[in-house]
Design a protein around this nucleic acid. Structure first.
Length: 419
RNA sequence: GGGGGAAUGUCCCGAGCGGCAAAGGGGGCGGACUGUAAAUCCGCUGGCUAAGCCUUCGUAGGUUCGAGUCCUACUUCCCCCA
């Protein structure tokens, strides 16, 4: 793949930005892309009420696809999520209820419009849901029309299955069928929308290539597969995990400020990679930023944070996060729009213990943890370390923008605002 | 259907002669050093109205002054035989 020189803008951009892990046929796909004839889809599971940062990567591929004159499809997995994808998982997840899946689907839908332009034009993005066809299929017809093209021998050798078998972990029949459903989707989309490419993470390679194969056997036009590398940080950790959990894309699950902070904390060694994947800055600009050494690389991290946040949450929110961070970390002040928790004045007047104040602010989980953090020197009130767990806060402490500034560690700050 | 084994601190793995809030890792969090990075070092990693009290070892009973540890039944998982 690295020795292949694409002629199409689409593959050239993906390649130079580091999106490509595997492709079923570079030359064939390149020829289609050069003509603007690629119709590509990415499927999104409805397992949670928000997509996460891993999905952001595939959204960026769809973005470049559209920018280079091709057509993106976002497939909501309203049907496949009812089965549950075993890929990359070493045990069965609990089955989700249909109501839960539908609710997740509604919550997820909105995010794509941030990056893609939807509509009816040739290169406009289209959203479709496999719940439109999968639940309607008939068992026997399905077996005759589709099932006969699948070799169980081959299915057993797929990584997603093999892994379970080797580890002697249970795999139920419903999960075993996931790849059939996903393969069928690819064929269905090729018929309905002329889709000819499916993209996804590297763990989807097996599922995607099964679809390519099924298409050939069922006589569709040629289908292609393209996957992205598994995202890890330079020190080897899986990307997208924080103390609070996953890095969600929906603002109500993970605020633009937190999102900005996530990128700001990137390891030095990852800055260039992430700039290429998660911003749309020109390559020469990225090359310049990447060269910054020592403390200067912090400038590059700010650009990364702001550009990535602007892409997802809009420039205004990104600049606000940048400014909040500047005041908080560089000017040593108190930004008025730090995360804020309201508290009744009466409670403050009665004397609120520091420990419970930190619990109320959501910075620590329990008084016990707060107590331990006081020991460790991790808590601060109005930027002054808490040394005595007994002290109480009063309205007189509301000296920062009319609120009490509580800090946990170096990075987490909350304003406790009396109301 | 028969025989054998396993379930531990709700993030994971994992020790645990009847005295156990329970060894040790990993992960995570905090501190120091730095640059809101990495690496390194140190501390913490059940709850509370906190020198005390309460709740934890698959579930429910039992033996015992005392049970994660012993007994019984049940649940789930794994292995072997049919």
């Amino acid at each position: 793949m690295s020795d292949f020189t694409p002629k199409s803008d689409f593959l050239r951009i993906l390649q130079e930005r580091g999106f490509i892990h595997q492709c079923s046929d570079f030359a064939g796909l390149d020829a289609l892309a050069a003509k603007g004839d690629v119709v590509a889809y990415v499927g999104y599971d409805c397992t949670a009420p928000s997509l996460h940062i891993g999905n952001f990567l595939s959204m960026m591929m769809l973005y470049w696809l559209q920018q280079s004159g091709n057509k993106p499809i976002t497939l909501m997995g309203g049907g496949t999520t009812r089965i549950g994808d075993p890929s990359g998982k070493d045990e069965t997840r609990a089955l989700r209820t249909i109501a839960e899946i539908d609710a997740n689907k509604e919550a997820i839908k909105g995010v794509f419009a941030k990056v893609l332009k939807f509509g009816t034009g040739k290169t406009d993005a289209v959203m479709i849901d496999n719940a439109e066809w999968l639940p309607e299929l008939h068992w026997i017809d399905m077996l005759r029309d589709v099932g006969r093209h699948f070799s169980v021998n081959r299915m057993l050798s797929m990584d997603s299955v093999k892994l379970r078998l080797e580890r002697e972990q249970e795999m139920s029949f419903i999960e075993f069928n996931y790849m059939i459903a996903q393969s069928y989707d690819f064929v269905e989309l090729s018929k309905r929308l002329g889709c000819n490419l499916q993209m996804g993470g590297s763990d989807q390679w097996g599922n995607i290539i099964m679809g390519v194969d099924l298409g050939r056997r069922m006589g569709t036009h040629q289908l292609y597969a393209l996957t992205t590398p598994l995202l890890t940080t330079a020190s080897g950790a899986k990307m997208g995990k924080t103390a609070q959990g996953a890095v969600w894309l929906n603002a109500d699950a993970f605020s633009p400020y937190d999102f900005w902070q996530y990128w700001r904390s990137t390891e030095d060694a990852d800055v260039g990679k992430f700039l290429r994947l998660f911003t749309i800055l020109p390559m020469d600009e990225i090359a310049r930023l990447e060269k910054l050494g020592g403390a200067e690389i912090n400038e590059a991290k700010k650009v990364l944070a702001t550009e990535a946040t602007a892409l997802l949450h809009g420039r205004e929110a990104a600049l606000a996060a940048l400014e909040t961070a500047r005041i908080t970390f560089e000017a040593g002040g108190t930004a008025a729009d730090l995360p804020t928790v309201e508290i009744a004045v009466s409670e403050l007047e009665a004397g609120l213990g520091v420990l419970s104040a930190f619990v109320k602010a959501g910075l620590v989980a329990s008084n016990g943890e707060a107590r331990r953090q006081v020991q460790a020197g991790g808590l601060r009130v109005n930027d002054r370390p808490v040394t005595n767990p007994q002290v109480a806060l009063s309205p007189a402490d509301a000296i920062n923008a009319g609120a009490i500034k509580l800090s946990f560690g170096k990075k987490k700050h909350v304003l406790l605002r009396p109301v």
